[in-house]
């Protein structure tokens, strides 16, 4: 029969001993010992599968350590992206400028750029309403109509630099092996059309327009730039 002390109520000390795996003389000894009993064959039935998984993992290319590097890899990835983006932007700008300068396409790109897009958008504007009311068709036509918009973008970048940060502009132009004065002219001329830029240096603009004899184009821009030229600071003053 049961010995009386075997059924003493559980106290904290006995519980701690039991949890540590000590024998306490309590009835739970046997229950916990049974729960901890060595493995039976049935319990190890999955051994072959586990071993197969282990071999498969060993053959797979060694993965880099996941745990410590989750944050690291995220940071690294972001940094890599940023560096790549900066490198791309720089090379695109500088390289694009150099290429344009070499092939002499700079002027073409600069001056012919507004036209294709303008005609494309006007065409799109004419065509699209009957076809569909969505906005996307005109946008597609505008972008795919010619290759010049690409060049225009890089020029725009450079000219943005010109307007905002002269130091960087000079640096970029110098790197591109481009004549700075000529580039400034280009930018000023360009600046006239889309955003009516300040371009305070009026004198350099005049000979440029004369020399290129932009008979067809300059008249369009003259009226726009008239105020900006005299004001020198452009929009804010107007």
């Amino acid at each position: 029969m049961t010995s009386p002390e075997e059924w003493t109520p559980m106290d904290r000390k006995t519980a701690d001993s039991l949890l540590r795996g000590d024998r306490t003389g309590h009835a739970l000894d046997r229950v916990l010992a049974a729960a901890q009993a060595p493995a039976t064959a049935a319990e190890l039935a999955g051994e072959a599968d586990a071993m197969a998984a282990f071999r498969a993992a060993a053959q797979a290319p060694a993965k880099h350590r996941k745990r410590p590097s989750v944050i690291q890899s995220c940071l690294t990835r972001m940094l890599t992206l940023k560096v790549a983006a900066v490198a791309f932007a720089t090379s695109a700008t500088v390289g694009g400028m150099a290429l344009a300068a070499n092939t002499g396409a700079l002027h073409e790109a600069t001056f012919s750029a507004p036209e294709p897009s303008a005609t494309a958008t006007s065409e799109a504007a004419q065509v699209s309403p009957p076809v569909s009311p969505t906005v996307s068709p005109p946008a597609q036509v505008g972008t795919t109509s010619s290759a010049t918009p690409k060049k225009r973008v890089t020029d725009t970048d450079l000219c943005t630099d010109f307007q905002r940060n002269h130091e960087r502009f000079r640096e970029q132009v110098r790197r591109a092996g481009k004549n700075q004065v000529e580039m400034e002219r280009t930018c000023r001329t360009r600046a006239g059309a889309p955003n009516t830029s300040p371009s305070a240096r009026q004198p350099s603009r005049e000979p440029f327009r004369d020399r290129n004899g932009g008979g067809t184009r300059t008249p369009e821009r003259e009226p726009q730039q008239g105020g900006g030229n005299t004001g020198g600071a452009g929009q804010p003053h107007r």
Binding site: G46, D49, A50, A53, F54, A56, A57, A62, K63, R65, K66, R67, P68
Partner: peptide, 15 residues
């Protein structure tokens, strides 16, 4: 068995 698949796969990441 699912747990062991994962253990085998990720064991190298454990320290």
């Amino acid at each position: 068995s699912e747990a062991w698949l994962q253990i085998a796969r990720d064991l190298r990441t454990f320290s």
